[in-house]
């Protein structure tokens, strides 16, 4: 099945997952850990986009901002306010890390929406790394900041005493499920949207339903634009919530 040629057969051949295959950029087959791949390319483009928006866009430092600078300031204010609102004043020093995550995810998502693009955030390896980085970072930070009292996060002192052990068990399980849900939510959303668009694109090979297919792709694309931002937002806000738990573990 995998040996058939891509997209040249016409008719109804779906390869919705082929867009996620990681290929070396400069020929060859081997994907070693250092090989520049299409994932590398699109991550690099995301970095460049972040640089262009936040550094080149603000290079004039105008007091009355231009278009690009307003967007950069909007992004800054958006994440800064989110961190401040959720984590409190003492969470502000982690703002650059959270901003890094948000900018990377949002640009990887949006660049992935370009035709023929590759979406790094649709890969569980990428999102899981970020989610586990958040998980371990937040857990270690919690213990460093609060010592053993960080475990108070699992002990719901407002609940009736007999319920507390059960709640503690549930809290512990939910705590350890966090990185999984955190990463799969983002990767799953990105992958599903791109795959669905690809499936609709496959239907376009049949002339009779091609217009419908194009309309469906357009609609899905609009939805995906929304999802791209919302998932970046959700990932970021959950990171903030976890960080808040580490800084203020008591309910």
């Amino acid at each position: 099945m995998a040996t058939e040629t891509q997209g040249e057969g016409g008719g109804l051949e779906f390869h919705p997952m082929d867009q996620f295959i990681i290929k070396p950029l400069f020929g060859g087959d081997a994907v070693n850990w250092y090989t520049p791949t299409n994932a590398t390319l699109w991550m690099a483009l995301a970095v460049l986009a972040v640089f262009a928006l936040l550094v080149l866009g603000t290079s004039k430092r105008s007091v009355v901002p231009g278009r690009v600078q307003s967007v950069a300031e909007l992004a800054y204010g958006f994440i800064y306010k989110m961190v401040e609102d959720i984590c409190g004043k003492d969470g502000v020093k982690y703002f650059p890390y959270i901003m890094t995550l948000f900018m990377f995810i949002v640009f990887a998502n949006f660049l992935g929406l370009l035709p023929m693009a590759f979406t790094p955030t649709s890969h569980i390896a990428v999102t899981a790394l970020m989610a586990f980085a958040v998980f371990f970072g937040v857990t270690i930070l919690g213990f460093v900041k609060n010592g053993a009292s960080f475990l108070g996060l699992f002990w719901v002192s407002s609940a009736p005493l007999p319920l507390r052990p059960i709640l503690a068990l549930i809290e512990v399980i939910s705590y350890f499920v966090r990185p999984v849900s955190h990463s799969i939510r983002l990767a799953g959303n990105m992958m599903a949207g791109h795959a669905v668009i690809k499936v609709f694109a496959g239907f376009a090979a049949i002339a009779a339903i091609a217009p419908l297919s194009v309309i469906a792709i357009t609609a899905m694309y609009g939805l995906e634009v929304l999802v791209s931002f919302i998932q970046a937002y959700v990932f970021t806000i959950l990171t903030c919530v976890y960080l808040k738990d580490a800084l203020h573990p008591h309910h």
Binding site: N32, M43, Y76
Partner: peptide
């Protein structure tokens, strides 16, 4: 491969943000 390049990308973004972008935007604001 992905993890390596992701770490590179995140480090690059973090560097760009913490050294250039964020202080500049903060000062502008």
């Amino acid at each position: 491969n992905q993890i390596f390049w992701l770490l590179v990308a995140l480090a690059a973004i973090y560097f760009v943000l913490s050294r250039m972008a964020l202080p500049r935007i903060a000062s502008v604001l």
